[in-house]
Computed example of a mutant assay.
Amino acid sequence: MGDITSRFGSLAAVQSLLTNSLIGGLLDGIMVVIVFAMMYLYSPQLSLVVILVVLLYALLRWAFLANAPAY
């Protein structure tokens, strides 16, 4: 009986983590779209600069993390 209760307790923790992560990620994605739309309405050129900087950052991060040793 204790084993079953322990397994359900673990399931609840995983379910809570997945649900909170999903909702948080969805809200973050919506905010990114809204903020980018507002930036584009304010200045399309400035929005392009932001996109290029974010892409450069992602490329550099990927390049350096791909070669990082695993601990």
Rank of each mutant, 00 (worst) to 15 (best):
Q45W: 09
S10E: 13
L22F: 13
L17F: 10
D3E: 15
V53N: 01
M39C: 09
L46H: 04
L41G: 15
L17N: 01
M1E: 11
D3F: 13
I34E: 07
A58N: 04
V35H: 05
S47N: 01
V35C: 09
G2V: 09
L56R: 05
Q15L: 15
I4E: 12
S43I: 03
V14N: 04
V49I: 13
V32T: 13
V54S: 06
I34H: 02
I4G: 01
G29C: 11
S43P: 00
D3P: 01
S43N: 12
M38F: 13
Q45P: 02
A13N: 01
M39F: 13
A12E: 12
M39G: 08
L17H: 06
I51L: 15
V54W: 01
Y57Q: 07
L55G: 04
Y57V: 13
M39V: 06
M1L: 14
S47Q: 02
L17R: 02
V53I: 13
S21D: 05
T19P: 00
L46G: 09
L56K: 03
V33T: 11
T5V: 14
L55R: 00
I34F: 11
M1A: 12
G2K: 12
L41Y: 09
I4A: 15
Y42R: 05
Y42E: 06
V53P: 00
L26N: 02
I51H: 04
I4Y: 07
V14E: 06
V50T: 08
L26M: 12
V32P: 01
F8N: 00
A58Y: 02
G25V: 03
L48T: 10
A13Q: 00
G9H: 05
S21I: 07
A13Y: 00
V33N: 10
L46F: 08
L11Y: 10
Q45R: 11
L46C: 03
I30C: 06
G24E: 07
Y42L: 07
L18Q: 07
G25Y: 04
L18Y: 08
M31F: 12
L22R: 00
Y57S: 08
N20P: 00
G25F: 05
N20T: 14
I51P: 00
Y42I: 06
L46Q: 06
A37P: 00
V14H: 07
T5F: 11
F36L: 15
G9R: 05
I23C: 03
A58S: 10
L27T: 09
M1D: 12
L48N: 06
V33C: 12
S21M: 08
S21A: 15
V32G: 04
M1F: 10
L22G: 02
S6C: 02
F36S: 13
Y57A: 08
D28T: 15
V14C: 03
D28K: 11
I4D: 10
L48W: 06
I34S: 04
G25W: 02
I23Y: 03
S6W: 12
S16W: 01
G9M: 05
Q15K: 14
V35I: 15
F36D: 09
G2F: 13
G24W: 03
P44N: 05
Q15I: 14
S21L: 10
L46S: 11
Q45E: 11
I30L: 15
S6P: 00
T19A: 14
T19K: 06
L22K: 01
A37W: 07
D3N: 13
I34C: 06
L52S: 09
V49K: 02
V32I: 15
R7K: 13
